[in-house]
Design a protein around this nucleic acid. Structure first.
Lengths: 193, 193, 193, 193
DNA sequence: GATGAATGAGCCTTCATTCAT
DNA sequence: GATGAATGAAGGCTCATTCAT
């Protein structure tokens, strides 16, 4: 008996992302993805129940790895400002390094496949961030407004600026990333003037 | 020669949006869209060169109407804060009223069809906003940072908060919209402490 | 607008029977049937909802035409012996003339597709025969036994003898058909010795 | 070298019959049959050259066991009437006990797989019956007509009445079986009135 | 002997588009 | 202009069979 080939699994993961980014969900057929992964279409079905399962699990795998990278170096006793800035920079770094992964998830979250995701589970990967924000609110460092508002000022700008499909006039470098964070911080933090 | 039927045109527009929102680009076939519009597939080709043309022109039509609504009541001599707030509220209002249009464009902009759009043209619909921001910078009311950064803090949060696919715990009402704008304003405006 | 083509319909009917007889249900793909009918696979789906519908409606059409041929020349006031003999001969004649139709129905009735048929409806095509048998019973010309037993002695032998797949040593000619009917008659009729 | 596992062999035999009866030849894939037998598809190929071989040998095995059961208690010096009646009852008994085996063979004999069977060989299993009929003819107890006619009146009714796919209004019990045999006997025997 | 992995070929069906009326 | 019929190509998926362990 042959054993399941980890390389094929990985090749399918990469091929899926590549094809979806290059030609979109609409034209990314199983045949093309399999060809890109140098695997038979039938083989794909050993690793995934069907096409949707392939796409969903690709998405989840990216989100998982993203959450790990996002929290790299983070400690729960960090200063709120420092903590959020670290995560902000980690996210930009991840998106710059894995533009392809990022593009895939953005396309995914904006199409009906998104409904197939258990949002709570994915959110749980990022719970330390949520806790940090809550701590900031409690400490009156962060405005006490609807959580989604805070969350969106901390996340949406990154997704926007790092996304070359949407925003192609922006250069992601240390300076710009720092500047952008300052805007985010000004948005959410208490002014004590 | 009979004249092209304005009603059919409109029916196709609405059907396209409905189908794409319900089942996504992937499964929205010409046949289904035509059926939804109560029109023959062949008829669709009288109004549009091909499927892509149908989608692209649907997108552009929405963007056009969006820009008109966004600028409703705006005057070029407006105060920067007031002007931006007006537009901010107009946008939220439009997205709440036309959730379906909005969803369509979000799905569109995040998939490869977006490459087919002449971005400059669409941006030109919104040029008064850009000019207002630039004026704010010149007047030292708004931070003098990369334009994309400012732009994204003014737009990305709206797209995030108003999008039920992404953000379903947020209630769009006057109070929340005002609060959110204050965060945006704090993000982009000069602090003079 | 083009109109539905009666010839294509008929070509599909014949092609289905031909393929199923030649290579069986297992290997009779939609592609092969369509090719045999000189029609695109897609065209088949204009005339039939799916493959099963094609097979079922082919079966029903044959059964309908069979019932018409079987009852040709039959009158309700006929002598029981003469009536049954007429039908018996009509059936043999039909099966000899349309061996292909016959083979198709036999293969169909013995496989799970048969479950999809509304038996009562098909039986209703043959109701005059059933009434004649019942009349024979009432007149004490035919044994008063379970109806299925009578029915099977009147039908099963024909299906057996006329079926070249099962019975290839038998020559269907007038003499043999008459002889066979005498056996059937002896089976079902009262002996008054 | 380990020895072939008799249990696996048997499991495949049963699984084949079960699947073919439940979903038909068309949908009975090797994978499904193997799964039903709790065996790997690859294992199946140790016991059978290919899929067709599996089906054919399943058919032959049933036919063999059928012939044994059919002739149980039969002796070559039996009275013609008694002999035929014994076999008639044995057949009904077998078909009632092994409805699944029976259904399989009926489906098999009516589809192109039947061509792969060496008919003479299968017939040879039943040669005592044929000899008995011939003896009956010689003794002028049985009509001297084409052998296939006699054969079909002795066999076709059983296959018809015992087959729930074709005939579902008939109750197989001792009384009905006896009555049916009387019809068969009346069909084939000389009348001496 | 036994097995799950692996596969090219083929399955049924739907696709975007054009034809003929 | 409007339409349902028509289609070759391609869609997702499963097939019978073999491979490698």
């Amino acid at each position: 008996m042959r054993i399941k080939d980890e390389e094929k699994q990985q090749a399918l993961f990469e091929a899926t992302i590549k094809m979806v980014n290059e030609i979109g969900f609409v034209k990314s057929s199983v045949a093309k993805i399999a060809a890109e992964a140098k695997v038979s279409p039938a083989t794909l079905y050993i690793y995934h129940k069907n096409k949707v399962d392939l796409l969903v699990s690709t998405y989840l795998q990216i989100k998982k790895s993203l959450s790990i990278e996002a929290l790299k170096g983070f400690q729960s006793d960090m200063d709120v400002y420092e903590g959020l800035k670290l995560i902000w920079k980690n996210l930009f770094h991840y998106f710059s390094k894995h533009t392809d992964y990022f593009q895939f998830t953005e396309q995914f979250s904006n199409c009906p496949y998104a409904k197939l995701i258990n949002r709570e589970e994915v959110d749980s990967y990022f719970s330390p961030v949520f806790e940090l924000i809550q701590y900031g609110i409690d400490q009156k460092l962060i405005k006490n407004v609807d959580f989604e508002i805070l969350h969106c000022f901390l996340v949406a700008p990154i997704l926007h600026l790092a996304n070359p499909t949407i925003c192609n006039n922006f250069t992601v470098n240390n300076e710009n990333v720092d500047i952008a964070f300052d805007l985010a911080w000004d948005a959410i933090s208490y002014r004590n003037n």
